[in-house]
Computed example of a mutant assay.
Amino acid sequence: MVDLVDMAEDFRALQLQEQINARPQFHAVSNFECDECGDVIPEQRRKLGGVTLCVTCQGVLEAKQKHHRGYR
């Protein structure tokens, strides 16, 4: 017999899966090496699609963009 807690957990899992499936999917080919520093890009990151920078270089780029947005 299924109780309410099990039903709620199943419902929440379904909601999470729908959110994951609703994310934009990128189909561009990812680089194996970072364009900026030449380090290897991990497979899990390459699976995102269209990745050209390693995590470190991507973080630096985003920090620079965030910093420069305030100046116009």
Rank of each mutant, 00 (worst) to 15 (best):
C37E: 08
R69W: 05
V60T: 04
G38Y: 01
V5D: 12
H68W: 11
E62Y: 02
D6F: 09
Q65H: 08
D39S: 13
G50W: 01
C34Q: 04
H68K: 06
C34S: 06
H67P: 00
K66C: 00
R12D: 03
E18A: 02
Q58A: 10
G50H: 00
C57Q: 11
Q65Y: 01
L61Q: 14
L4T: 14
L16I: 08
K64G: 00
R23C: 13
L16F: 02
A8T: 01
S30M: 12
D35V: 06
Q44G: 14
T56A: 07
Q17L: 10
D6R: 12
R23S: 02
C37K: 01
H67E: 12
Q17D: 12
I20H: 08
R46V: 14
I20M: 05
V55T: 12
C34H: 07
Q25D: 09
R69C: 00
C57T: 01
Q19D: 07
T56K: 10
V5R: 15
Q44V: 09
Q65S: 09
G59R: 00
Q44A: 15
K66H: 02
V40T: 14
K64Y: 12
K47H: 05
R23Q: 13
Q58W: 03
V5Q: 15
D39C: 15
V51D: 07
L53K: 06
A28Q: 14
C54N: 06
H67L: 10
A8V: 07
D6M: 11
L4H: 09
A28M: 02
E9M: 04
R69Y: 02
M1L: 11
N31H: 14
K47Y: 01
L14R: 15
D3W: 07
G59L: 05
R12S: 06
R12L: 13
L61T: 00
P24Q: 06
E62D: 11
L53A: 04
E33A: 13
G50C: 04
E62F: 00
V40H: 03
M7L: 12
T56D: 10
E9C: 05
Q25F: 15
H67V: 01
Q58D: 04
V29W: 12
M1K: 10
Q25H: 11
T56C: 05
T56V: 11
K47V: 14
E9S: 07
S30C: 09
C54R: 10
M7R: 14
D10I: 03
